[in-house]
Each structure stands twice: as structure tokens, then as C-alpha cells.
Nucleic acid binder design. Structure first.
Lengths: 359, 359
DNA sequence: CTGAAAGCGCTTACAG
DNA sequence: CTGAAAGCGCTTACAG
């Protein structure tokens, strides 16, 4: 829309140049903050830019300069709390740095599908951030062609990587360790674990942290139950655990899983925390408002997203000294769902009268 | 990465042309599916494309053709269930149509900030989808310059718009109406309402649907309580409603709000549903697993997102006949949190012994 | 400090 | 059916 109110082609640097009485190269210098422009000239150009409502064509800029100011986030999911919060953190940081953010969803973990998504993401130009908390993400990160700027948001690495690794992570291994210790400290003989889907065939960081805490305490190591990302998986696991009198403390790979576990325990007539303690992971917004409110470990996902962008930003603009972005350490938040072990455990779970399976 | 394994400049249409022994215009014709290319020529070009791993440079394509295959979603939020699900639906449909999706978050509803975000979003080229469920979104939709392809995801309009309006909506007015009728049908004298923040100064569609149902039933119309999007707002509202003996049925603008309301009622010792019935809105994944499980109205947010993209796609590519995408009608899901009115209501709420305010 | 030229990798008419 | 030219709106050396 120009001053006459008509919808026309947007103003180009040539239009600005004409209006300011300079060549378009000078306009280019002004919009790029090049120093060698006479102040008076600069002012005239700035005035013309203002009057014409000029905005640099990002596409032309990208093509000519070879740099895009775009970050594309590759992720298997955009709605679960952790993923969504990382995305939010990336977006915040990107917006502050005037980067556009694109998203590509990895719907399948199949080799071909992952490769196609990675290619699509690279087509956007700019850099990539891959959320590699699951199989699809891990594969996508591996499939990024050499030379393409990329940062991975990953689980805690098993061994400390070199200082140059383009990865960020929250210390979910330590978080799981801490949550497990919390439950053990309440007198439970051991802690059962309902896992989120693992990103690889190897043991996930959360599982490793849980296991380590059990070993340190000399506690039995029950088999982890495989969950999903949502409450349905927790519910299924919870039904099985409700039948196990030894399961007096349950750690869940995320809060949604914990919700499902609690529901299943409730239906089985197992009181929380009097008979069974439950802890989650993430401290999602719902955790504090559940009944009982959920003991969990807070993870700084938005900080993680900001850190990921910061790292990528530093790679993309070598000149810009991008300060490393701190990610808060995991923090245990003890609430009502965890409590002291009661002796002896009940061996005959009651059937709760009002139990109705969720629909 | 070329065949030699070295990181180099990606293959261009000229490289392909050289390899195939044709001019680069012919390559352009092949990748654009232009009909007038001899099959043998086409095959040679296709082979060269395959060998060189050629991918069309999207930036150059956009600049030369003037069309981007990008949809940018403008939204005040990316993490709440409704917003995130709409985004998910858009992304699915966009991916299927080989469109890139960008997101821009409206952090503030301030005039200048909104305008700046809209401009940033337009810079990406392509089309816009604006989620206009809140003040920032409504303003953004209004601030989109004429001529820019845009689709709004809006609340149910007060009056039926013309067939050409670039809007999509779920019938949240009807949904609120249905949920209210459900609660009234259980014998409650009236239904209190805890609202999500309204998008405009006018009455929101959900509020209107609730009010209409009350009027039709000749029920009293309590003042709606202003909530937020998250459980904290519901908790605050719930504390107030817990003190009101007339509040025996509460409809909440979304499920997170309902969670907070239920927590507050629990702390005040008000039994759900025996003393107070609660219903939510959206049927988020947690609703079925809460205790009590939450009565709510399911809204087809991903369908809404797909529909929004479909509409935009039709605008962007006039040739492509894009089938209108159906959005499922809202559906009441009755669960444990709503039940028959008990007579007479208790006038002296008990204090629940284990009540601990959420942290 | 400022301008003229070449080019980024494509597409779009225009010839033939 | 295929090729040569001009151009999309910028940036990047290169002159002056």
C-alpha cells in the first residue's frame, strides 16, 4: 500500500534511490549500516524509506547475499509440553535477533521420510535446529548434510562431548537422578520407572539417571515400563503397576505420563501418596493443579530453546559474539503426590467404587 | 555434498543443463512440469537431476516467480492446547502441499508491536494465517495490508459472513450452548462461567453461547468470571466460586481453566460432581485422565488448522481447485465431573484437611 | 564518500 | 520442442 492507498508493488531500493536522489547502491549501504555514507545523504535516504514504507525484500537479500536469517526447527512434535516450550524459547530468541522461524514436523521416523524432511528444511536456507529427543529427531540430526549449520537439542550425552559440539541439553540425567533420590529418601525400597519413548536403542538419559540412583542406593532395579508421550501410555503402565505391591514409588518420564499413572492408580483404589508415591518430569503447567498436585522435576525448556538459537546464531554470524545462553539446572519440585512409604504395603488393592475408565 | 563427498555449492540448473547437454531453460521446464519437452530430453534431465542431487533453490524460485510456497502463522501463543493443535493442523496440510511453514508470535497486543510482527511475517513472502482468538490476534488480522493473502482463524462470527470471507472457525458458540444445556439438564438452577480472555471488547462467542442457553432456559445469568488461558486463572476463579453456594455448575472456557477450578473446589472441600459440577472446553488430552475425569466439549482444532491452510492454498493458487476442508462439529463429552444437582446445596463448605495451595 | 557493473539462481515471455 | 535475453531485488567487489 503506497501513500495513495492503492495496492501496488512494494517500494524497491530503486524507488527509494529515486526519491532520495541517490543511486540504489547508496540505499543498500544505508540499510546495511555501512559506515561510509555522508550523514546528510543517509538522512535523505532514511526519509525516503520512511515515506515510501520501504522494507528490504528478504528473498532478494537472501539470494544476493547468500545468508537467510531463517532458522528452521525440525521436530517430531509441536504440542507436547517439552517440545512446545523449546519451540517457544527458540522463537523468542529468534524474534529478538530478527530471524524468521520455520518448522518442519517429522511425522515418521522412517529413513526416507526423515531425509525428505531434512531436505525440505534445508531448502528454506538459513540454519537448522533439530529436536533430537526421539528416534525421528536423532535420525534427522544425523541426516543433516555436512556444511549446513545445525544445532541439536539432545538428551544428556553419555560422555561429555568436546567444547565444539553443536548441541545443547538440559541435564535430564541429573534430573532423573534427583527425582529418584527424592523418592528413595522417603523410605521406598525402590522406584519403578515409566519411560517416555527412547530416542535410540540405547538407554535414554532419564533412564540412566534413574538407574544410577538406584544402584547408588543398593536398591532393586525393576524393568522400566515403556510409555508413550501422553497420558494414555501412563494409564496403561499404571494399571500394571497397580497390581504390583512392590511398586510403592513411581517415577514417570513426563508429567502427562504421570497423570495417566495416577488415574490408573486411582481406579485401582491405590491412594496417592499414602500407598503409592508418583513423580513426574518437566513441571508442566498442569502439575501444580492436579489432585494430588504432582511432584516433578522442573526443566528449563524455554531456556534450552533460547540456548539452541544462541548457539546457531553464533555459527551463522561468526562476527557476532553471541553470549552463551544459560540453561537453568533441573529443580525438584516436591508436591503432594510423593510421601513417606507406609509399612506394610497393602497386598490386596481395593476396587475404587466410582472407578470409570476414561473415554 | 557432491558425488566426491566434498562440501561445495549445490548444483544449479546450469549444472544440470551441462550434465544433460541441454540449455538451462529446458531444465526449468522439466522441474516445472511444463508439457512441451520431448520425453527423451526430459529423461536425460531427470537423470542429471538425480545424479547431481539437484534441488531447486527456493529463494531464487521465489524471487523470479514472485510466489513463495510459504505460509506464516501469526499467533499470540504456541503452547496452549487449542493454539498448538491449530498449528499442528496447518503444518500437516502445508507439508502435504509442499509449503514451508513459518511462525511469528505476537508477544504483545500493543498496536506498534502487532504491526511490526505483521510486517515481519509479510517479509517471508507467501501467505498468512492469523489465529485471532485474542486481542493481539484480532489486531494482527486487522493490520494485514490489503493485497496480502491471509486467512483468519476466528471465533464464531456474531452474524453469518458472506461466502467469500477468508475466515475459518469452529462453532464454539454452539459448543458453549451445548455444554451449558448439558449442565442445566442435570438440574442445576444456572451455570456459572469462567471465561478465557476475550478477543475483543465485545462478548466472545463462547460467552454468547453460554448466555443464550441460560436465557432459553429462563435461568439466572451470573456475571462471567474473567480467567486467563492457564490453570492459575481457573484456580483464582474457583476460589471465589467455592464460596458461592449458588454455584453448583461451572463451565470453563478451556480445560486448563477447569483444572484450576477443580483444584480450588477440592481445596475448599467442595465435592465434584456431588456438590459442584464442572465442565471444560476443548477436550485436551488430559481431560479424560483427570480425577474426576472432565466433562468437556471437543473441538476439532487440527481440522480447523487444515481448513485454514486449505482456504489459503486456494487463494494462493487460483488454478488449484482445493476441496473445502471439513471441520468436525463440536461434540459434548460427558465424564465424571458433571452430575445431577443435589438438593439442598450445602451452605457451609468444609475445609478439606489435606489442602495445600499449589506452588 | 558515491556510482556503474556483474551476479545470486531461477522464471517468463519471445524467438525460432 | 528448444534456446537466447531480460529481469526478479538485492549485494558485492571494483572504480573513481
Amino acid at each position: 500500500m503506497n501513500v495513495t492507498g492503492h495496492t501496488t508493488r512494494p517500494a524497491s531500493i530503486r524507488d527509494v534511490a529515486d526519491a532520495a536522489g541517490v543511486s540504489y547502491q547508496t540505499v543498500s549501504r544505508v540499510i546495511n549500516g555501512h559506515p561510509s555514507v555522508r550523514p546528510a545523504t543517509r538522512d535523505r535516504v532514511l526519509t525516503a524509506i520512511e515515506e515510501l514504507g520501504f522494507r528490504r525484500n528478504a528473498t532478494a537479500h537472501a539470494l544476493a547475499s547468500g545468508r537467510s536469517r531463517i532458522v528452521t526447527v525440525l521436530t517430531a512434535n509441536t504440542t507436547h509440553y517439552g517440545y512446545a516450550s523449546i519451540l517457544q524459547g527458540i522463537e523468542e530468541a529468534a524474534r529478538a535477533a530478527s530471524y524468521a522461524v520455520g518448522i518442519g514436523v517429522l511425522e515418521s521416523a522412517g529413513e526416507a521420510a526423515v531425509k525428505a524432511e531434512v531436505q525440505r528444511a534445508s531448502d528454506a536456507g538459513g540454519g537448522l535446529i533439530v529436536i533430537a529427543y526421539d528416534r525421528a529427531g536423532v535420525r534427522a540430526l544425523a541426516a543433516v548434510p555436512a556444511g549446513l549449520p545445525v544445532v541439536g537439542v539432545v538428551e544428556t550425552p553419555a560422555s561429555p562431548p568436546g567444547g565444539e559440539s553443536p548441541w545443547v541439553w538440559a541435564d535430564d540425567r541429573a534430573a532423573a537422578h534427583e527425582a529418584t533420590r527424592h523418592l528413595l529418601s522417603l523410605g521406598h525400597d525402590t522406584v519403578h520407572y515409566v519411560a517416555i519413548p527412547s530416542s535410540t536403542r540405547r538407554t535414554s538419559a532419564r533412564t540412566a539417571g534413574w538407574r544410577q540412583a538406584l544402584r547408588e542406593a543398593g536398591a532393586a532395579e525393576p524393568r522400566p515400563l515403556q510409555g508413550s508421550w501422553g497420558p494414555a501410555g501412563g494409564y496403561a503402565a499404571g494399571r500394571r503397576l497397580a497390581r504390583d505391591p512392590a511398586a510403592t514409588a513411581i517415577l514417570c518420564g513426563n508429567d502427562d505420563l504421570a497423570l495417566g499413572v495416577m488415574r490408573a492408580l486411582h481406579e485401582a483404589g491405590r491412594a496417592i501418596p499414602d500407598e503409592v508415591s508418583v513423580a513426574g518430569f518437566d513441571d508442566s503447567p498442569l502439575a501444580a493443579y492436579l489432585t494430588p498436585s504432582l511432584t516433578t522435576v522442573r526443566l528449563d525448556f524455554t531456556g534450552l530453546g533460547r540456548a539452541a538459537f544462541g548457539l546457531l546464531h553464533g555459527v551463522l554470524e561468526e562476527s557476532a559474539t553471541v553470549a552463551p545462553h544459560p540453561v537453568s539446572a533441573p529443580e525438584l519440585v516436591a508436591r503432594e503426590s510423593s510421601g513417606p512409604r507406609q509399612h506394610p504395603p497393602r497386598h490386596t488393592p481395593r476396587q475404587h467404587p466410582g472407578a470409570v475408565p476414561p473415554t
